[in-house]
């Protein structure tokens, strides 16, 4: 199985069919029991940090701190990931995904599930990594936000990026860009 630049692999399947495990194997968090994952022809477990420098991963946990504000969360996540961003850049990213300025300064614990998800997804506006691994990115998002994220995905793919998505929703992207992988329990 191959994922080419400019395409998206949509992993679909019932609950418990191993979609999330597959994504974690792609991210190198989980070693595969058999077979191997290659990036540019090299095993990702040999590449280690070099491979980590190629990807942006969003699991089903948002990875944001309740005690920090959305702005602080985004800035610290980006600097941790080795792609430091300015405060203005972070604000623009949060606005792009529909989080208004007053929300930026609130502690994240008062946000709704959908708003927290959007804080996590705002990283996509600042990431210049070629590979995006997203686990159910549209969970608890409203239609408008789903649309915004899909547009961002399209821009990423058009720039030659690639993405693997675990999802149970249809993705409104041109069909030639999307490959589907159906896992069965």
């Amino acid at each position: 199985m191959n994922v080419e630049p400019g395409t998206l692999l949509a992993v679909v399947g019932e609950n418990g069919s191993g979609k999330t495990s597959l994504l974690r194997i792609f991210s190198s968090l989980l070693p595969p029991e058999g077979g191997s994952v290659l990036w540019d022809g090299q095993d990702i477990h040999q590449l280690k940090e070099l491979y980590s420098g190629q990807l942006t991963y969003l699991g089903h946990l948002n990875g944001i701190k309740d005690d920090l504000t959305p702005l602080e969360n985004l800035i610290s996540a980006m600097s941790l990931a080795g792609e430091p961003c300015s405060s203005n850049g972070a604000k623009e990213a949060l606005e792009a995904i529909g989080l208004k300025r007053p929300i930026h300064q609130l502690p994240s614990k008062v946000l709704s599930q959908g708003q927290k998800r959007r804080v996590a997804l705002a990283r996509l506006w600042l990431s210049s990594r070629p590979l995006w691994l997203l686990d159910e990115p549209f969970t608890s998002l409203d239609a408008a936000s789903t649309n915004v994220v899909t547009k961002r995905l399209l821009a990423h793919l058009q720039r030659g990026g690639l993405a693997v998505l675990v999802t149970h929703q249809e993705i409104a992207l041109p069909t030639e860009m999307v490959h589907r992988l159906r896992l069965t329990g």
Partner: peptide, 17 residues
């Protein structure tokens, strides 16, 4: 705390040992 909210996962995937 980092383990429960998913930050640890992100930390493991930073491009540093």
């Amino acid at each position: 705390a980092d383990y429960l909210d998913g930050v640890l996962e992100q930390m493991v995937l930073i491009p540093q040992p």
